[in-house]
Design a protein around this nucleic acid. Sequence first.
DNA 1: GTTTCCCGCCATCCC
DNA 2: GGGATGGCGGGAAAC
Length: 360
Amino acid sequence: MAALPSSSALPDSSSSRHHTYSRKQKSLGLLCSNFLSLYNHDGVHSIGLDDAASRLGVERRRIYDIVNVLESVGVLSRKAKNQYSWNGFGAIPKALQDLKEEGLRENCSASDGNDYAKVSDDEDEDERFSNPTGSQTSTAAVPKSSSSSLKADNRREKSLALLTQNFVKLFICSHVNMISLDEAAKLLLGDGHNSSIMRTKVRRLYDIANVLSSMNLIEKTHTTDTRKPAFRWLGVRGKVKNEPTLLPESRKRAFGTDVTNVSYKKTKAESSAYQGFSHSLNIQKLVQCENSSQEDSQNSQDQECERTSKSYQFGPFAPVTVAKVGVLDNNNVKRTHDWESLSSTFRPQYHNQGFWMQFL
DNA sequence: GTTTCCCGCCATCCC
DNA sequence: GGGATGGCGGGAAAC
């Protein structure tokens, strides 16, 4: 879809709608992968949303989703309307470190054990947006007081960016290594939320998980016992040493991309079982990576290296400028991510190995 | 039947 | 006022 504005921008809307339509090819994860491969070059400093949308052949709305998540982990930073600065993967460790510190700080203030998850996402009270209580004001330094600012706060509290950060904090601020989205939603929301709110939150978490998965900061997996789908944190420490509960997910897919997923069966029973653990304890239980704890980000590098470079393949939104697979000019290639070996990790799920191999 | 998550409406923000 | 931003949830593909 050579960056064609309209038509290409709606790859599916009409064209693919018929027979060949496949949601897998339009996943946020795949789109994110393409986005990254498109901009993760040396010469790239700023990114225009319109440009990205047209080059990737998607509507702007999708770009916002990706950009919000990427910004949350430091890869991008907003420069101006429609413009973002490309910080690269090298900015991730620092961003994670900041998040960790912030999360720990927040935790301290709150009784640690239990929901540190609610770190700043106290949106739980959500629904009552009009709620004047500043309690839920996110950590973000947002003014508050005026009704408009309250609205803004509320909006921000529910933003994909903040949710992403809180989701990440769930992992880096604790020993939790693996968690299901249901659990994550519960932790982030707190109890007592109706199913509707929960469902919405989980939907957003899926979006986030897809993007983070495509960056290999997390990976989809599931527990052996319940087989309930869950996400495992890879980002910082990469390989988890002991993962008793994990099933060797051979065909892990970077979520979103495609491969839509794993094939485990999910049964109600299972899910309920998994959900059994609630906040406090669960957290601890889920934990797999215990130890190694603190050090964190720094190590990321090594582990990341371990990750295999997998294949890559553009979906419907193959970046127009990016040459077909394997043809990227070497310089971009060059430092896929300063974020050390994230490069190797980065973007596995597609099928052409060649593409990623060249980065190694 | 359930899970996953794309899609685009539309509220809100911002210039 | 209008374009930019992004929350939200319907609904369909995937499982």
